[in-house]
Nucleic acid binder design. Sequence first.
DNA 1: AGGGCATGCAAGCGT
DNA 2: CGCTTGCATGCCCTG
Length: 639
Amino acid sequence: MKGEEYQEIWLDRQEQEQDLLDVNEASIFYNDCPSLPDFPLMSSSSSAPAPAKPIASSSSSASSSSSSASWAMLKSDAEEYGEKKCISNNNDNCLTPPVASLSAATSMEVLQPPKSYGDPDCMDMMMETFRSTELIDSNEIWDPSSIFLTEQPPQESQHYPQNVDSFMFEEINIEMREREQNKPPTDELGVLFFEWLKSNKESLSAEDMRSIKLRRATVECASKSLGSTKDGRKQLLKLILEWVEQYQLQKKQRLAELNPPFPPPYQEPPLQNPNPNSLPPNINPCCMPSTWVPLPPPSPPYYPTTAVMAATPGLYGGDPYGSGVPVPVPNYAQSMEYNMLDSSQTWPPSQYAMAAPYNQGSGKLVRLGSSATKEARKKRMARQRQFLSHHRHHNHNHNHNQQNQYQNPDHQRPSLGGDQNCSNAGQVSSANWVYWPNAAALASSNVAVVAVEALQPPPPVQSQNYQQQQPQWRVSSDSKVSSDWQRQGWEPEMNLKFLLQKVLKQSDVGNLGRIVLPKKEAEIHLPELEARDGILIAMEDIGTSQVWNMRYRFWPNNKSRMYLLENTGDFVRANGLQEGDFIVMYSDVKCGKYLIRGVKVRQLGPKSEAKKPSKSHKNTRTPSPSAASGSSPPPSHRE
DNA sequence: AGGGCATGCAAGCGT
DNA sequence: CGCTTGCATGCCCTG
């Protein structure tokens, strides 16, 4: 397992999601790479590296380290991500936000505008934003989400100013300092701000206030727009305060959503993601196989001990979004996006109420306060829908490409290294389910995840000895890879988990095209089956990179089950497998795909064990449970 | 004795 | 008639 790779994947993912998150977190967190991309006049920062000081204790950072491994991972990865990102950008910004040096609880920092927000365009952009939010025309509520819906590409928000200008938006800043020093307000702005502070003291911490920053250009633009008069500044202050207030509410809302209070601390890798909207963070979208594709029998929950599969509940047996085609990444993104953008509409009443005193206390701001007009809300919703549809379209295209990729299983021999490993996986068989394991679950499996040292055929020894040697060649905790591996284009970093092996019987290599799988291992390492029809599993041939769509199913057998892999005929023929050879199944913990390899035993020794009559092979059984944890009978013979 | 599994075999289906 | 599908039978290992 290569942590870096996981991290990279996560970073990639994160950055994609961050495009969405930028509208809310990263883009406005200066500590973390901040920004007020367009016209968010200010940001109440609670950076990722320096965890936000929770406003609501119920959604504190403690609770954010939720129980589920997914979330634990998400959190830790996110933190790593934040740190990494900061390192890559600017340590100063991350570790010691300049704003902190402005001290105390209340400074507003004006940042250098990014070049992309040049003055000439700034006004137009801002005015557009104002119009879009009806601030100018109707003094409508300042809605951050509508701000974020401007056309600025999220990437631009990544280009954060490296230097912090000491320019201060004087009056606001002075007011903040004075408030900090408990000086009574002396003017209108001061009173306004003081009242606001009083009314929001419960929801806004000093930390939050400390982190408020403004870009110079933003303020300048705002000043131009609203006028440099007292009224204009007052209006600006109100807008800023309103934004902060609402942002805090949004943040709380998000925290509550992301960190439900109930999850216990991390204990065991979860089998199911507690949040249907979430996605295992370590899954690269490219690796995200079409985890579930509709097929008749909805699959079941998994054994608690089944470390392999853990589809997110929402994805299992149908996506939560009603598309019918579970496409985790985009849905996740959409979901996140929606949650963020729609947060203004999902604030609980209590939070609305929290802003009430302030709103009540300042006439015009009553409207600016927690309640947008229906018209404004409609407009925001329309914008959001537009925004969402745009992203859905984008995501759809992405998936479509993936699907196309999947639809051509037999003609692709992609590089199996790195993330590309995953891109070819998940061949989808038209109308059926194709099961791909959840990579996060694979990774979190309590079954040892090992790197394949060598998938060479077993040593040409007598079966009895071979049985003993088996663990050595089969898997290894080392990450060494055989030259055989590398010759076939496999990266040394392949993270394969051994699932099972099966010595092929005559009936397995016959024209029936089905291989009986060892029951125990199948139940442990393969998806639990509820219906006899089972599921389709895209099985990548390690040797040829070809992907075979096999059906994993079971037969009722007495009071038990017989597990089979069907549609194996082509695979067997392609590999020239015969009785006595065997197959080995792995799962790629990184990408969550299944791999299979046919191993020909007879070619390795003068003594062909494969050619023994089938009758003798009837005695081939698992010699002992300890022979292999989770492996099927090794090629040994009962005598 | 019970369970796993190799495979025999019958029913269904397509040509 | 041949193939496929699905189940049943029986061997044999494990406990």
